[in-house]
Amino acid sequence: MSNLQVSLVELIRRTSAEIPEDVHKAILHSLEQEKKGSLASNAMAIIDQNIALARRKSQPLCQDTGSILFYVHTPVGYDQIQFADTAREAVKEATKKGFLRQNSVDSLTGRNDGTNVGIGAPAFHFHQHRGSELEARLVLKGGGCENVGAQYSLPNEDLHANRDLDGCRKVILDAVLQAQGKGCGPGILGVCIGGDRATGYELSKTQFLRRLEDRNPVPELDALEQDILMTSNELGIGPMGFGGKTTLLGVKIMAANRVPASFFVSISYMCWAYRRQGVRLNATGEISDWLY
């Protein structure tokens, strides 16, 4: 096995089994907030115990090891084809080892060949940069939270949402209401205002690469993030939809250009089992740094 493949198997293992530090911190904060002995507090306690157990046993935090999304920044001229081939082998290997569930199904035949490799699976997002380093980030996104994602086209008459920031606020909060606990809350929102139907969703997911505690450099978006977070946590949906103070752990929003005729707001929901990790790789494919 090449160094790169070994590194990518380790990236997958750690992403699947270990919650990132920033997310764990938010979960512990939520556990403190919830009333002791409530259903919400008991659910958060089980979640915290699960985090410790998964790490100790090197086993998946959640059995739905999700869609496998690679975000790779490469130096100019790097061989992306070889990276993708190696990553596919790493995915197969990680599946054999139980870091990933046999989780990829042929949509026409319903067949699951047990490898997690097929058309569009895993997914790769390659970007070249001027630097000399290779950075590979991985998000494993479960189906339960993916299913509660939503895309709105503004204006939306039912929600009285116009083509402005208040309209965006209304539809984002509607998505939180519709999701209830179904996406394994407390959740984290990744939102893209603008783009087209495909890029809107795609960019909304890049927001999950941000650290939970960071602040948006765009003042209007920062205000909207804080507002959505605070308002959502006043709705009383709570962990698992059991009721309680923590409906969301974080909100991350970006804006992308759109064509004049379209105004999409695309919302991706990430469950508490927020699996995101990243590595910086040296020239021989070994891990030099962890990014989160």
Partner: peptide, 13 residues
Amino acid sequence: LHAVGGAAQVLAE
């Protein structure tokens, strides 16, 4: 009966 979603390790035990 609602189990805690995502708590795959606690429940596997």
